[in-house]
Design a protein around this nucleic acid. Structure first.
Lengths: 222, 222
DNA sequence: GGAGATTTTAAGGTTCTTCTTAGCTTTATT
DNA sequence: AATAAAGCTAAGAAGAACCTTAAAATCTCC
């Protein structure tokens, strides 16, 4: 799960980044509106935390722009104000929720979970054949035995399983899991796939991650 | 499906070439305006990606020239700028769409698909007689039995089936399935057709890929 | 700041794809 | 029936893509 924080006050953004990191979200931070908008177009976030008052383009305008580009990513406003008109403005601009500063971290977390749940349809467990991954606890089981995966391995597996039955091209994988955009000459994917297969396959059996030569990989049952 | 990329930054053009290759497009690259214009007159592309700022003739001028020669090939501009006037200029010069750098690869892909009118969901499965190909999973079935094809075999089959009932001349096949650097005096097609027939036909029956002597091939039911 | 873990790079080996070649078969023409 | 042209097939060479491993670089957490 990947979250973008658009917030100029270093104190708050660090606090959020650390807190959310501990909850095992991948977190990016943008310190102003322009940067925030750019990151949100380039990357694929599961949720965006947007401060109302930021340098550059205002939060509300960032929100409007994102919606204009046909993205339905959940957006939660962080606002110091609490007037009715502001709230209305925010929701009209396409926000899903807002929280008034100062807030308790637990409360924010609860609201984030609400947004992600409606988006994911309560899906915290992904399954494919013998492999089961719990997104909340970050645990992975293969044939009921627990397997320890690193961050990268975990996201790669998550991407493959979310797209099970479809080919994941190398380019798509690099974009979604590594967040690289114009770097085609790398073999990180091969290595990471290698690790995954080693950790998840029980020796004899052939991998459920199939290679499609010249294209990419696909996760398939059976 | 064949695409021309006119782009001087090696990093970007390589990235695009690889990514589109994985989506089973045949891709040519031109590093400047003159080369781009030349290739576009010599070859028959299904779509052109045109960078705005390139050495030699500018992207916009290339676009104008192509249109002047009465070609209606879809053109998508890659642009770093985003002012209204630039967009207007581009569209006036005859572009069909434009995308602002930096962009997500999949967004570009979506726009390409729109131009080629092969929207996802509509055409992910191609059928002809007993043969069925799923473009998303890269799987091919013949009489319900799965068959493994290589990249080239896959693209060739795709081209034949997309044009089912029509004669595909050798020249067209070479142009659309292979990329440039090809002398006409080669028998790659024969060989590839041969493989396809072997893999897809169940022995006794005659192939659904018919040879038209002196012209090319045609895929026909029954 | 250092130890350990993670991630990336690099290189060699292996496998698979693609292309070429060449001899053979079919078809068309005289 | 002979000849030529076009296509078919098989086998092998060249090349690309992938796998594997190890070591280097980077990140994390005391």
């Amino acid at each position: 799960m990947r979250i973008l924080i658009v917030e100029d006050e270093k104190g708050i953004s660090n606090f959020l980044k650390d807190g959310l990191g501990e909850e095992s979200f991948a977190v990016d931070v943008a310190a102003d509106g322009n940067k925030g908008l750019e990151l949100s177009t380039v990357n694929d976030y599961d949720l965006i935390l947007l401060d109302w008052m930021i340098p550059g383009i205002s939060g509300i305008e960032v929100c409007r722009q994102i919606r204009k580009s046909n993205s339905f990513v959940p957006i939660i406003f962080l606002t110091a104000k609490d007037t009715v008109s502001d709230t209305v403005f925010g929701l009209e601009a396409g926000a899903n929720d807002y929280i008034k500063k100062p807030f308790k971290f637990e409360e924010l977390l609860a609201r984030i979970r609400v947004q992600l749940r409606t988006k994911e349809g309560e899906q915290t467990i992904l399954k494919l054949g013998n492999v089961e991954m719990n997104l909340e606890t970050h645990q992975v089981f293969s044939k009921l035995r627990e397997v320890t995966l690193t961050q990268k391995e975990f996201s790669l597996l998550e991407y493959l399983i979310r797209n099970k039955g479809k080919v994941c091209t190398r380019t798509r994988i690099i974009e979604h899991v590594w967040d690289m955009h114009f770097d085609s000459d790398t073999s990180v994917i091969d290595v990471c796939i290698n690790f995954l297969r080693k950790k998840l396959d029980d020796g004899s059996e052939s991998s459920f991650i199939h290679t499609i030569r010249g294209v990419g990989y696909i996760a398939r049952e059976e």
